[in-house]
Design a binder for these strands. Sequence first.
RNA 1: GGGCUGCUAGCUCAAUGGCAGAGCUGUGGACUUUUAAUCCAUAGGUUCCGGGUUCGAGUCCCGGGCGGCCCA
Length: 520
Amino acid sequence: MRAVHRIPQPPHPTESRAVTEQNLPAPEIAEDLPEQMRVRRAKRDRLLAEGAEPYPVGFPRTATLAEIRTKYAELPTDTASGDRVGVTGRVIFIRNSGKLCFATLRDGDGAELQAMLSRDKVGAERLESWKRLVDLGDLVGVVGEVITSRRGELSVLADEWSMTAKALRPLPVAHKPLSEETRVRQRYVDLIVRPQAREVVRTRATVVRSLRESLFRRNFLEVETPMLQLLHGGASARPFVTHSNALDIDLYLRIAPELFLKRAMVGGIERVFEINRNFRNEGMDSTHSPEFAMLEAYQAYADYRVLQNEVRQWIQEAAEAVSGSHVVTHQDGTEVDLGGQWRTVTLFGALSEALGEEVTVRTDMSRLLQYAEKHDLSVDPKWSPGKLAEELFEHLVVPGLQEPTFVCDYPEATTPLTRPHREISGLTEKWDLYVRGFELATAYSELVDPVVQRERLVAQSLLAAGGDAEAMVLDEDFLRAMEYGMPPAGGMGMGIDRLLMALTGLGIRETILFPLVRPE
RNA sequence: GGGCUGCUAGCUCAAUGGCAGAGCUGUGGACUUUUAAUCCAUAGGUUCCGGGUUCGAGUCCCGGGCGGCCCA
């Protein structure tokens, strides 16, 4: 469906009048607006008074700025191409002089192109109108010939111009960085003035698409499972609670899709994944957002070792999609090589190395407590030895895990939904992948024995009943599904925001387009 | 949750307890090859909010709001 456009012929005002506040119609808007906003509203009124639309229905664009840049890349200095085009863009710089005006336009790709308006071409009145009514930040359309200026700048020399959307608010200074708070609260402004902000949006889209393609190539099916859940489960985290008026019951925003993806596995979807949002009602900091995107995938007849290889490849393929190789460049300029095989350690092996003494899943609580004291780790008396070992690991080892590292074999006590280790009792078949000191992904050999599963979930639900807000409640329907038989499987989860952090070196609020912020 | 710290013009930032300022932006003017154009002139303020101390508070004190950094 494509509208047929004529080149618009903006009406010529019968007289050329200076636009000042004195002779403008009184703005109907509140008088207490800052001067610059009053002026822009007045210019909008003035456009209407001249019979021009400040917000027309469209503009006959014949080429994007990027297309023109490509097509006329070789046009020599001070040359007219003879080709007439219609272009649009936001005015990001403006240089007006008496009879010749320059403006730099930028359009959706981030490509920039100069527009030139000379009195000879557009006429005195249209030039005057341009100078009086066009501000930095306005969206304009220009019809004219593609030329190069005497300085060699590729330009469109206008026969005509028109407003395509008048900006009523002034743009921030383009050459000074916006405060971090404004960047997050008014991302639309950040996107206008900071090319890097636009780049992140594209990078994120590239990464998500790459992940989907990686999984499609391996015959995974993408599904969407409930975000509104009757019961809270699938991970350890505090949920958001909401309410259904129709059912008159409280519902939970999901903290993980796991229990539904496993139901799908029971039903015969042997390779299944979902990329979508999870919600956790917990703290917000530089690596945690209350809503975050996650990839979760399950593969029948695979285990955590198979997934180790798979996940590494998916991430490497994403790196390649972003940067063309396994070496990604962070926004501070450092290069990070995600290629090759990645280091694999065991949790207790890495912990032993950090402590300088052999520690295993059998090491008793009193010795672990000594280590905790020695390293100033405050201990919660409710912790099991396994939990304490994991806390020691996070405290002593994780900050040093800058290169991608798989950490394998976690204590059973901390991983209730994971299959027991096939060789070492007390451990489970789980790995966490760390990069730059944070957890990027995790995977398990899934626990599929419905009897053991029930024992573990009952224990969890007792914790929940005892007041542990992070513990899961008993999901009888999930257990019923498991009793029909789920194939042996490996399962994994990876934070999309964190993958972006790993690939770009950004903080989580920079990787999320519109992160949650406290109300102003 | 604790410690430190910031909030001033549209934006980025100055201002010993003593007239609230600069650059960019805006406005008026000059300029037909500019590139963050240049030149002349000029406007613009609830100093986050509420109390207090003081002859006098952007500045000091107390409380609150919204950020940032570090720690838990």
